[in-house]
């Protein structure tokens, strides 16, 4: 169990090392993919980007493409790992729940001083919705990108319709990915969300923040910790009574009897 309250440190473990790795592998490779994807448009020279220090390569489409491929190996492998790994383990914390849309609207209203936030689970309802949206966008980017790569590597004469479909799908979802990335950045700038930022760097958030804003999550952790403790208690080994024990007991009885007699 990764999630754990560290009372002495005043922290709660929110993400495992593996989850942090998954997030940052997708984030960093995703940023490289956005940049090199933009450089696949003929804009670097036109907009003087290639004249910026260290960006001379941006006007070379084949270098950009190689970097794009390199980043996509990480992006695709970790994306698939994430879905399969957490799917098998049954991790459902980020899957949208019924009522998330309405709740998200209410939460967004609170950012503008209207109403009060409801108590949250580990993730906010809009985080669950954003995760689902991002997962769909990344999934479509992966499938369409793989189709394009297949054409480039194996079948340059792939049907024109399929090529146009893969390319334009990739382009449209590329734009959506940029919007989703900007939305993600805006979300962490919002003051109420800022305490969560340290969680994605260190895996831990402040306990007082979590108790205040994510009481349902803290309750789940405490319940889980209590259940684990109970299970451990129940599983404490009961010593079996062996023949030897019986003999010892009989000996003790025999030695006790005279004492009793003496005392009497």
């Amino acid at each position: 169990m990764t999630e754990r309250i560290l009372e002495d440190k005043g922290l709660v473990i929110r993400h495992s090392v593996l989850e942090l790795f998954e997030h940052w592998a997708i984030a960093l490779s995703g940023i490289i993919l956005i940049l090199t994807g933009i450089f696949e448009m003929p804009i670097a020279r036109r907009y003087y980007i290639n004249e910026l220090p260290g960006l001379a390569w941006s006007a070379d489409f084949i270098i950009s493409m190689k970097i794009h491929y390199l980043a996509s190996v990480v992006f695709v492998a970790v994306g698939l790992f994430h879905i399969i790994h957490h799917g098998i383990l049954g991790d459902r914390g980020m899957i949208p729940r019924k009522g998330d849309v309405r709740q998200s609207i209410d939460v967004i209203k609170t950012f503008f001083g209207k109403g009060e936030e409801p108590p949250f689970h580990k993730y906010l309802p809009e985080q669950r919705l954003a995760y689902a949206a991002m997962a769909v966008i990344i999934g479509v980017l992966i499938v369409s990108g793989l189709m394009k790569t297949y054409k480039n590597l194996i079948d340059p004469q792939m049907s024109e319709g399929l090529t146009i479909l893969a390319t334009w799908t990739h382009n449209i979802f590329f734009v959506l990915f940029i919007f989703a990335f900007i939305g993600h950045m805006v979300a962490i700038i919002l003051k109420p969300n800022r305490p969560m930022v340290r969680g994605i760097f260190t895996g831990r958030v402040r306990l007082d923040y979590a108790k205040h804003r994510h009481p349902l999550w803290i309750a789940e952790i405490m319940e889980s910790q209590a259940a684990v403790a109970e299970a451990i208690k129940e599983e404490e080994p009961v010593e079996e009574i062996t023949q030897e024990d019986t003999e010892i007991a009989e000996d003790m009885e025999q030695t006790e009897d005279p004492e009793e007699e003496e005392s009497q």
Binding site: K66, Y69, L70, S72, V73, V74, V76, A77, V78, G79, L80, F81, H82, I83, I84, H85, G87, I88, I142, G145, L146, T149, Y150, N152, L153, I154
Partner: peptide, 17 residues
């Protein structure tokens, strides 16, 4: 690199499982 890209989903799935 293109070959690695084509292999990457299988790498991810195998590692995930």
């Amino acid at each position: 690199l293109e070959t690695w890209v084509m292999a990457s989903p299988f790498i991810g799935i195998a590692a995930g499982v």
